[in-house]
Write a protein that binds this DNA or RNA. Sequence first.
DNA 1: GTTAGCACTCATTCAAGTCGAGTGCTAATC
DNA 2: GATTAGCACTCGACTTGAATGAGTGCTAAC
Lengths: 345, 345
Amino acid sequence: MELSERKLKILQAIIDDYVENAEPVGSRTISKAPGMDYSPATIRNEMADLEEMGYLTHPHTSAGRVPSDKAYRLYVNELMQKEELSKLEKTVISERLHLKTQEFEKAIAHAASVLSEITNLTSFALTPKKADDVIKYINLIPVDNGTVILMIVSESGKVNNKAVRMSVPYTEENLNLLSKTMTYNYKGRTVSQALTNNIIANFETDIVAMSGLAEDLMPNFMKTLEEMLNVNLYMEGLSNIFDIPEYNDLTKAREFIDALSNKDEMTRKLIEREDGITVTIGEENDDDIKDCSVITASYSVDGKFIGKIGVIGPTRMQYNKVTSIMKYLTENLNEAFKLEDEGDK
Amino acid sequence: MELSERKLKILQAIIDDYVENAEPVGSRTISKAPGMDYSPATIRNEMADLEEMGYLTHPHTSAGRVPSDKAYRLYVNELMQKEELSKLEKTVISERLHLKTQEFEKAIAHAASVLSEITNLTSFALTPKKADDVIKYINLIPVDNGTVILMIVSESGKVNNKAVRMSVPYTEENLNLLSKTMTYNYKGRTVSQALTNNIIANFETDIVAMSGLAEDLMPNFMKTLEEMLNVNLYMEGLSNIFDIPEYNDLTKAREFIDALSNKDEMTRKLIEREDGITVTIGEENDDDIKDCSVITASYSVDGKFIGKIGVIGPTRMQYNKVTSIMKYLTENLNEAFKLEDEGDK
DNA sequence: GTTAGCACTCATTCAAGTCGAGTGCTAATC
DNA sequence: GATTAGCACTCGACTTGAATGAGTGCTAAC
């Protein structure tokens, strides 16, 4: 069966109503919608067709219709018109973000919190992974008796360091030479490349001459590199879940909170998602959040996507509104961190 | 009225039973407890007395008794005998912690997660505040065209840094001189002292000679100091709240999650608490968590308390068990980070 | 002082009954 | 042939009322 113009119109009306009221919508309600010039009976016939086609479901015989995941998918793909935010809305968002004054990582976390407040959904943000960050510079700085600071600077300007307690004596020249050697060996490589075994092996043979210094430093060097691979997951508005009628059920609420609290799993899932704005609806998601939809958007520095920000909420969310907000929000992020990127700690 | 030996015994039995079953406990139940050689009627009389004295309450006429906050307070202060953990329990905890292999901040976060898993409560941990950390060393390292890394090293071995994009030209000697001047001015001061205005003023006049360099650097220096004041709050096992019968109510669960999600407020409250192991029961807490008890313990590095770890759960929690676990856990933390403290990033 | 006995209270549970929103089908209408 | 009015039917939500039973408080006996 074809999806006639009229069926689409009715489907859209049902979705709109259900998104707003969270209650199965009946034929009478739809027939009274503006611009809907059909009687309830006609609507009912069309509804029956739509149900047969999988766009609607029926909680029980005498209840109204509820859009299925398939309906939302159709809506997101075809029916939804991108909503341009009003000037006012844009201003509010920009001002709430006030990105300029903040350090990168903080700014991302803050953006998540703004996103949650505006959408009234649960939001999250993933800070940049630095796996592809290129090592630029390795420095060894003596601090005092027996402690040396190992510092790794990357192309993107990020600095990571670690204080290392040395077990062998050393001179400033020694450290200088060693750091030069290390820089020579690792410069231009990405963090993840540097972490692969063969490079380490090569390096270690190289500096045998440098006594036990490297033995103290190398494990710490590797550890610091590993830390550079970490991403942080921030989450905001977890309790917004309780505003959603679908989750007025302790078991469901618990499942939701459990799923989101598993940071490792969440991080993995988010990283896997495609860049740009992506929407996954209901059963397209994992089982434990199969009543939810997830929208993510990636933000970039210098045109390279480096992290993600997103929301999770009931399938009956305002897709157009939320995607518009996220689009505008990530544009702000991209803009703010385009040229000058400050180092984070 | 006095709290006779017998009243105490009965009260203790009621608390024990209620902690275990979360249901009002009746006179019959208590009369059957081991070592309780009185009839239900006698128990009832004593219960009535205890209620009059404020140690018990009565959900409704025909229900059993429930311990009041006052009863728990009495229990914690006087009745509770410190439970020594078994060898096995200790081993389990130590192994789960495996502190040695981890970076400080991570270790703290991990400890919170272990605590939550063992107690089945919601746990949290506060990482060290560095306000009292003494500045030891300030370094300025040129990286490449126009970027300088500002590095602050503290007595405790922590390193904080920031990449600063310079707007004026500089030489390595310039930077060297400036970093020496800065070190001279700030060395020996705590982070919070360094942040007070008058010192900055002094300093700024001092280095007028150093052209606009300081103008680029000082705001970043202050910002980095501010960042050093930040503490992080980690939280685990939020959904454990749903295991607790008292929170089988969406409004309450929501309130709880809302209260805990407010990180700033939580952090403030935790910092305010006294060091050592402290227990606050029910109404001794803020209104929004007045059905909960909070237990915190502080951990130390080199004998100085620098952070806290704790749990929050229903007032009817196993105070003796939980405090024992927390005591042992913080002992582990203190031990692990006693002498050698690795720098964190 | 302790206990047995008994009337009383009150939350909880369950079944029966009512209500009403909404459907599906049929027959009349445009 | 498409649309609509009409009507019987369905089924969840809510209400009511009775039965149940855990537990108390009181009194009188031990």
